[in-house]
Simulated scan of single mutants.
Amino acid sequence: MKGGERLEESLIHRAKNGNEQAFRLLIETYKEFVFKSVYGVLRNQKDAEDASQEVWIKIYTSLPSYEGQGFKTWISRIAVRHAIDCKRKKARRSEELVDEFAISIDTDTPKNYLVERSVLQKEQKQLVLKSLEQAPAAYRDVIEGYYIKEKTYQQLAEEHNVQVKTIEMKLYRARLWIRKHWKEEDFQ
């Protein structure tokens, strides 16, 4: 075992036993590495800085479960997973903002426009339902439930007797499939 590895293992052991100074030294040693791991996923300086702070909290709270399997690899795994979670949350928030914006536009428009828009939405839903038959069976129910019947993730999870994360992942994969196989002009 090299001197650097022994020092690292000593710091980890002391940090696991509550030594804050040892943990600070681990942060100093790996803060740039954690930031780069997070930034590689998020591609935004501010978001990566915030997420890096959260990663260090996760590392600290998870340290008792670390079993010497390669510290750099272990913290990298935590950092990348957290960054992916942050990216998903941000994408979900963006979708929610778009929905809220659409609702606010609806409340500010004349009634004729709303009637026309309602008819167009029904027509578009019919086109989507028709095209939905082409989608893989695993995605059909969640696409229809979420986009056509406008159910929440929670409602879909309860109906399918699965976790909300499973519904999120199915919708994510379904969106990827849709982007790849459906063209906008098919629905106009």
Rank of each mutant, 00 (worst) to 15 (best):
L7C: 04
E9F: 02
L11V: 00
R14Q: 15
E20G: 04
A22M: 06
L25I: 13
L25P: 01
Y30E: 06
Y30A: 05
F33P: 09
F33M: 13
F33H: 15
F35R: 10
V38H: 13
Y39G: 10
G40W: 04
Q45M: 08
E49S: 10
E54Q: 13
K58L: 12
K58A: 12
S62G: 04
S62K: 14
Y66F: 15
G70V: 05
F71M: 13
K72C: 11
W74G: 07
S76F: 09
S76Y: 14
S76C: 07
I78R: 04
V80S: 06
R81V: 03
A83M: 08
K87F: 15
R88P: 00
K90A: 14
K90V: 14
R92K: 10
E96M: 15
A102T: 13
T107F: 14
P110N: 04
Y113K: 02
L114E: 12
V115P: 09
L120K: 14
Q121Y: 10
E123Y: 00
V128M: 14
L129N: 06
E133T: 05
A138T: 04
A138W: 04
G145I: 09
Y146H: 11
Y146S: 08
Y147D: 02
I148N: 09
E150M: 07
T152V: 05
Y153M: 06
E158Q: 14
Q163H: 11
T166M: 13
I167F: 05
R173A: 07
A174H: 04
A174Y: 08
R175V: 01
H181G: 02
W182H: 11
K183S: 12
E184I: 15
F187I: 09
F187Y: 15
